[in-house]
Write a protein that binds this DNA or RNA. Sequence first.
DNA 1: CAAAAAATATGACATTTATCAGTTCTTGTT
DNA 2: AACAAGAACTGATAAATGTCATATTTTTTG
Lengths: 229, 229
Amino acid sequence: MESRCENCIIRQFNALRAMSKEELKKVSDSKTTKTIKKGEPLFDEGDKLNGVFCVRNGVSKLSKLSANGKDQIVKLATKGEVIGQRSVIAEESTNLSAIAVSDMEVCFIPKESITNTLHKNPDFTLEVLRHMAHDLKEADDVIVNMSQKTVKQRIAEAFLYLKNNFGEDEQGFLALTLSREDISNVVGTATESAIRIISEFKKKGLIHTSGKKIGIKNERKLVELVEGF
Amino acid sequence: MESRCENCIIRQFNALRAMSKEELKKVSDSKTTKTIKKGEPLFDEGDKLNGVFCVRNGVSKLSKLSANGKDQIVKLATKGEVIGQRSVIAEESTNLSAIAVSDMEVCFIPKESITNTLHKNPDFTLEVLRHMAHDLKEADDVIVNMSQKTVKQRIAEAFLYLKNNFGEDEQGFLALTLSREDISNVVGTATESAIRIISEFKKKGLIHTSGKKIGIKNERKLVELVEGF
DNA sequence: CAAAAAATATGACATTTATCAGTTCTTGTT
DNA sequence: AACAAGAACTGATAAATGTCATATTTTTTG
């Protein structure tokens, strides 16, 4: 039995909280819930989306293939985030592909339910706008980091980001486990370079690892590294 | 004598075209026109903006200072573009500073005229949203370029961008002349590196220069370079 | 459980890019 | 026109990062 959007706690975190009762009902009636296994795509770069995805559980990487054949991960979207709004709003095909990096549960909301509300409910539209303004600011920050920080700094920052946004498990490992390749695609470097730096961090006691799991051991030093000491 | 927004052609290019007659009148009555000389700031990073700037003429660089003391130019805003909306919408201080790279004429629109309309006119809000969606896509592209392309490719791309967006003068030089330092801040590299690559391009016959002016001589080869040949 | 496949890891080396030090050219000022 | 100040440029060198080859470990699969 599917749950109703009206009762969904996730909604607090995204623009859907600005919808009216009736609008929400319409969304709820038209939505479908999907389960996506780790590694499977929500959509591919260039796809035309006829709706958006609201993440109920799990994490998706949003990435773009570059000319040299490497993926650049632009964002990690997690619980509460809405994926695909940009392309639905701009009425363009997606510029990014979305692939699950952990098992996911998402709601697919057909675009009509969204666009109708966009045209009629300024509170909702404004709320979406605020979220997008936030995303844009974050994107600006990423640009600056990419161009002004070293790979070492970006990897340190990525670990701190993972800790702050996804937390740690009982044994002190980062709750979201990314492959070394994904890590390198987040920071925009060669996989070997990322691995090398991870080894170095381990030797210096900044982190500890177990298989592909990574745990932060000396957060203070990682922060210092990011800030350029 | 100031001109009225109602008659402003610039408006076509931004979200203000979705305003109603009355809303536009309010904007027109509350706006002030300013002249900004090359090199002067519209605002600095961290400022709280109580309005947005609509560019009537000239170009502004939007940049962010990084920890190592270098500026990263995130965007060049030109005729028709609205600057500062992101921070007005998010009700945050700006994450970027805006400095004129050529003499500018801008209209300053107090935020009340904007926010009122945002709350009441979904067409306007949606239009702003569309523009921001576009900006976000562009930012994603910049992220990918920054991390996956070489400095040489990024400089070649910058020249093509300048040609496509600002055109050329009668003698075939790029109409927007940036200092070597600004160019290096656009592509995110050291000024010396940028200069070196510009010299190399000149030697190879891809561009020609005169003082700080740069003209594209072999567009085809520049494109090939960007695409990785 | 063993074999195969995939991911992680390391070394050697090439390439790219930054840094520092200094020279030459431009531009604006008096 | 002479000077000063700031850009633009060049060279030498160091540091960061990418690439390729290969070894080792982990994970998956039959």
